Computed example of a mutant assay.
Amino acid sequence: MYPLVDTSYIKDLSDNIAEETRPIVVEDKIYVAVGKDFKDSRLTLQWVIENRGGSTIICILHVHQPSNKVPFGNISLLAGIMYAQQVSAYHKTERQAMLQLLEKYNQICQKAGVVTEVHHIEADCIENGIVEYIVKNNVRSLVMGAAASKQFSKKMVNLKSKKAIYVCFHAAASCEIQFICKRNFIFIRRKIRLKMSKKLDESKWKANNKELA
């Protein structure tokens, strides 16, 4: 179960991080982080299509996390104890499934008449992969899920996904991040210009949200 995160505390830490009541998509390119859960990520992607600027290019971003376990009969074994050829074959199957999934996301954009780019990388940690991709590719605008759709309520104002929380704290300050749940805008982390005397202190913030520790 994901922890409840009070985003008002983030706002207190920096005047440059603000919660908004209206979504804003203004960049020439906007990246949308999509995952293996097609149902949830499809809703996030549809929100972006509906709220983007007319000429905005949507960049579908997926971080593929190769499985560290390989099916063997009725059980799954750690990849480290399997033959390299078996592991390689299974990971190849995973990548093929990933490409098929990304094509489904791409088709949603194509049907809406949206100019689309598809980007995917591999990483052992999905949220860290997103953070590193933002830095390496100078991403200025990102949209991602705030929580699973089943956790949505009309009163929701907090981030509940550990991935969302991590990205919110660790992504480059130059990237604006909007968090969505079930096609509803939840929270925005504005581009930040932090002063040396006023930095985000994640450890202090977690102390006030002990369930994250």
Rank of each mutant, 00 (worst) to 15 (best):
E202P: 05
F72S: 11
L102A: 08
H170Y: 13
M144D: 11
R140D: 11
S41A: 14
I10F: 15
K39N: 15
C125M: 11
R183E: 15
P66N: 06
S67Y: 05
T21K: 12
V135Y: 13
M156I: 11
I126A: 09
S41L: 02
H64K: 01
T93Q: 10
V114P: 01
K155C: 10
I186Q: 01
Q100P: 00
Q178P: 00
N184W: 01
K162D: 14
R183T: 10
V118I: 13
L212V: 12
A33N: 04
S55R: 09
G73T: 06
L61I: 06
Q110C: 06
K69G: 00
V139R: 01
L78Q: 07
I177W: 01
P71E: 00
K92M: 10
G113R: 04
I186F: 02
V118F: 02
K210Y: 09
F38L: 14
G80V: 09
G145F: 00
S67P: 04
N74I: 06
A146D: 09
V5C: 09
E20T: 14
G35P: 04
K195Y: 13
E127W: 07
Y9P: 00
C59W: 00
T56K: 05
R95M: 12
V32F: 03
G35V: 05
T56A: 08
E117W: 00
